Amino acid sequence: MAGKKPLPNISLVDEELAWMDVEDALFDMQETGRELNEVWEEFRKGNVPADLHDDAPLRLEDAVCLPELAGVYTVNPEFRERSESITVKTLRLAIERKELAVVRPNTKNLYVTRRTLREWLEACQGQGNPRTSSSGKSAAMRKDESRTRPSGTSTTMTSNTSLDAARRILQELKKPSTTTSSKSTRRK
């Protein structure tokens, strides 16, 4: 005992708690190391979100993978996930209707940007959808448009009713107008 320094006055309980704290810290460091390794591996593979500029041109096939459209856009194209609700066809239709601005470097390729996609989405949300419910229609209209038919009816009967209505309209259109003078509508 001649060369050893005496330990500070620490009780055994305090010493065990200190070791537990050290073990917890080491475990946390190992866990953090594992998490960092996982993140690094994902980064190395390219399975991390790509940081794209708002005005960077994107092919429509890549644009549908953007988070703005509920997709996953990663550095590595193999890990990209397309939006389930917005498709390339949806974007093409919006471009045709002049709702979505497009970058067109040549006559073949179409490109969009994150900024134009966000503007298009905001415009779509502002428009509101036309009402598809039939609750505002009269009872007679709802009865005629019902998908279920009363027993004993047939498609022929329904189509004849529509045909009869079209014939009545045609007959009304063929009649001479009461506001037009006979001089100006003289037939040759």
Rank of each mutant, 00 (worst) to 15 (best):
M1E: 00
K5Q: 00
P8M: 01
V13S: 09
V13A: 09
D14S: 10
E15T: 06
E16Y: 01
E16H: 05
W19C: 03
M20E: 11
V22C: 01
M29H: 10
Q30I: 08
E31A: 11
E31C: 07
T32I: 07
R34M: 09
R34T: 07
R34I: 13
E35Q: 12
L36E: 10
V39Q: 15
K45C: 14
G46C: 10
N47G: 11
V48C: 13
P49Y: 13
D51A: 14
D55L: 12
A56H: 09
P57G: 04
E68S: 12
E68F: 05
A70Q: 15
V72P: 03
T74G: 02
N76Y: 04
E78K: 13
E81F: 05
S83D: 07
E84I: 06
I86R: 08
T90N: 15
L91R: 04
I95E: 01
E96D: 12
E96N: 09
R97D: 13
E99W: 04
V102F: 03
N106E: 01
T107L: 02
L110Q: 06
Y111I: 01
L117S: 05
W120M: 03
A123M: 10
G126R: 13
G128F: 03
R131L: 12
R131Q: 11
T132Q: 11
A140W: 03
D144P: 00
E145Y: 15
R147Y: 06
P150H: 08
S154I: 06
T156P: 01
M157F: 08
T158L: 15
N160C: 12
N160S: 13
T161C: 03
S162L: 14
A166S: 13
R168K: 15
L170K: 09
Q171T: 11
K175F: 00
P176Y: 13
P176W: 08
S181Y: 09
K183N: 08
K183D: 14
S184T: 09
S184P: 00
R187G: 04
